[in-house]
């Protein structure tokens, strides 16, 4: 069976009261409309995240209102704020404790690159050094609508995930890691400073 149902055929069938879908579509539809974020905030971005969850912006419209205080029950980690080097091992540990399938949104300049603290001694230059990030939101801090946009992008991403085949979703692939090594506190920096299996900075070629 083809992955997508022919749209014309589907609408014609729907007029007759028959709803045709695929297992993959149903599975992804269920998951993308019930993303439970992990309830934690690190800095000022967390205030925007709270605003997103409150009545004015209302993330519940997208099925993401159930902020869980336990990583065991969460699907989405919103890294909202500055990740200090002292906090980074705990973030990775929380990510490891989340059950598959799990997703990460890096919210704000600090979480994606260290932001204004990039040259400091105590701030991690982006959480993508240790865990894979699905959606990046720039901004300092990003407005709630930006977080909603990222949320919708994530939903789109989930909707496109395959259940089988070579490109199947990472959580269905037993070869793909679900946990990542927790960095240790070193004498001068975190050890290792980045996980080479996760962090692939684009090599900038300059003459």
């Amino acid at each position: 069976m083809s992955e997508r149902v022919d749209e014309v055929l589907r609408s014609k069938l729907q007029q007759q009261g028959v709803w045709v879908t695929s297992m993959q579509e149903l599975y992804n539809w269920g998951r993308k409309n019930s993303i439970w974020p992990l309830q934690f905030g690190l800095a000022c971005c967390a205030i925007e995240m709270i605003a997103t969850a409150a009545s004015r912006y209302d993330i519940a419209r997208f099925g993401g209102e159930v902020f869980r205080p336990s990583p065991r029950q969460a699907d989405l980690m919103i890294v909202a704020g500055t990740v200090t080097k002292k906090m980074a091992p705990q973030i990775v540990r929380l990510y490891n404790q989340m059950a598959d399938p799990k997703y990460v949104i890096a919210m704000g300049a600090c979480a994606i690159s260290g932001g204004p603290f990039k040259q400091g001694y105590n701030v991690l230059k982006g959480i993508d050094r240790y865990i894979p990030v699905d959606v990046y939101i720039p901004g300092c801090p990003p407005r709630p609508v930006a977080l909603l946009h990222a949320f919708m992008e994530l939903q789109r991403k989930i909707d496109e995930q395959k259940l089988s085949g070579a490109n199947k979703a990472a959580h269905l692939d037993s070869e793909q890691p679900s946990e990542f090594p927790v960095p240790a506190f070193g004498k001068h920096d975190l050890e290792p400073p980045a996980n080479p299996n996760v962090f692939h900075p684009p090599a900038i070629e300059r003459a």
Partner: peptide, 10 residues
Amino acid sequence: LMWDEFEDHA
């Protein structure tokens, strides 16, 4: 502020 294993003074 820094972790106990840190040796420098930032």
